[in-house]
Design a binder for these strands. Sequence first.
DNA 1: AATAGGCCCAACCGCTCTAGT
DNA 2: TACTAGAGCGGTTGGGCCTAT
Length: 337
Amino acid sequence: MGRSPCCNGEAGVKKGPWTPEEDKLLVDYIQEKGHGSWRRLPKLAGLNRCGKSCRLRWTNYLRPDIKRGRFTDDEEKLIIHLHSLLGNKWSSIATKLPGRTDNEIKNYWNTHLRKKLLGMGIDPVTHRPRTDLSLLAGLPGLLAAASNFGGSGVATAAWDINALKLQVDAAKFQLLQGLVRALTTAAGPAPAPGMDNLMALLALSNGGLHGGADQNMLQQCQWNEMNNLPALTSSAPTSGMHNISGMLDGFSAGDGLSSTELGDHDGASGSNVTIYPMVADDQECKNNGGGGMSCEQTPASSPFDGLESLNLMDDLNTDGGWKDLLEQISWLNSSEL
DNA sequence: AATAGGCCCAACCGCTCTAGT
DNA sequence: TACTAGAGCGGTTGGGCCTAT
């Protein structure tokens, strides 16, 4: 194996926070003579530190070209974009952000950006919609609330989609609808491949759910391109929701949306409805930079496989519809995917 | 006002990579 | 080619600070 770390075996070497005096010794020495061999620097500079500690202190804190202060929006976008391309290659990412250190970027990612992406339903590792089930937390309650609406319950043929829309706010309703379809498609005796599609829907729904969804963040999320999903542009979340909510409107109105938007459907009887994935807007792709990745329009079949030919009304206008759905959610929540 | 819990970030640890011999 | 020293990288930690109770 490799040799032992440089600081091991150097008894009496100081560790921990640097004092201003130590900083001055280090800065003065490097500015006068350069760092040369980091191993020998501490002794030459009169510091009781190991060379590695000196190097880190200099590169992460004392270097004169280090930029301090909050990360700008542009920097944030760039970090997310680069991370989608490079992963945790912090030093590589840092080379694209002048004045920022790998350590600083790494910390910022772990404390801010990672959580931000998670909150948007995007896996910060893969930059794809999350495939864990934490997003489902609270949904049984939502579903239960929805199922209580109308007194006699919704597990009847009297499902009133418009009334429910009044009861549950529109965004939650849209989220619910995505879940309904995905769960009835994906749930089964074993985790189904349709879960990715569920999460794709959730990501879109989440954007709508939070109203102020960070569109810029979504622009930066390259999960779509990296995984042959349709490009997600700044308009995609909204448009995606339009697509879903439009589908629902189609149910209640029985018309108004072309078959190319929603697929052939029959609002009165509750028949098949097809979700067609949103496709990229070329101009927006250009505006978003693209980072050298393709921004082509994607065939409308790839990302929502398994979500096509929706049978929402068939799924729900049955006595067992809600019961089954809740059982499926219960199973999903208790499963490890 | 006290304190517990969470957050943030500088610094450390352990490993890999690279260059020199 | 094999070995070693030094540098660099990414993951993790610990302590100070902030906030909620």
